[in-house]
Amino acid sequence: MTSKHILIVAAASGMLCVALGAFGAHALKETLSEYGRVDTFELAVRYQFFHTLALLFLGLDTDRKHSLSASLFISGILLFSGSLYFLALTNSTTLVLVTPVGGTLLIAGWASLLWHFIKRA
């Protein structure tokens, strides 16, 4: 994955974070409140946004290759935040076992980045 690809994904994800956050706070507020899932939805947006910022920084660092970390972050966002969005919007626990897998991928992304910095030092 090139820096350009990482930046494209980061920009798209950032746009989605703002759109989903606004949509959740306004259009979906009644549904999320009814299911008691406002906090779940906000957690999904927050984690997606944090890792979107991480992707942005990885993409801006053109001197180093961060493809593994970026791929782990992207996969983690999709599984972690995606499963939380699904839970918040449907109140279905069908994908509940996917959430920790996504969280593990996010942790692995940070571990990969840490390993890269240790090797570089």
Rank of each mutant, 00 (worst) to 15 (best):
E34H: 15
T62Q: 07
F86Q: 10
V45H: 06
L32E: 08
I74F: 15
F73W: 14
A88E: 03
Y85P: 11
L95G: 06
L60N: 07
R64S: 06
D39E: 09
F86I: 04
L53W: 10
A22F: 00
V45D: 06
L56M: 07
F73G: 10
T90A: 04
H26R: 01
L56Q: 06
V45C: 06
G24K: 01
V38S: 13
T93H: 03
T94L: 04
T31P: 04
K29V: 09
S67F: 09
S81T: 10
A19F: 05
G59K: 04
G24R: 04
S81I: 12
H66L: 05
A44I: 07
F49Y: 13
A22D: 00
L53C: 14
F50T: 12
K29L: 09
L60R: 07
Y85R: 11
S81L: 08
I77T: 14
R46F: 08
S92I: 04
T62N: 08
L78Y: 14
F41H: 02
S83M: 10
A88I: 05
S67C: 08
S33G: 15
F50M: 11
T62E: 04
A19Q: 00
V45F: 02
L97F: 10
F23P: 02
E30K: 06
S71E: 14
L97E: 11
T52D: 03
E42N: 13
E42Y: 04
L95D: 13
L79A: 13
K29Q: 13
V18Y: 00
T62F: 05
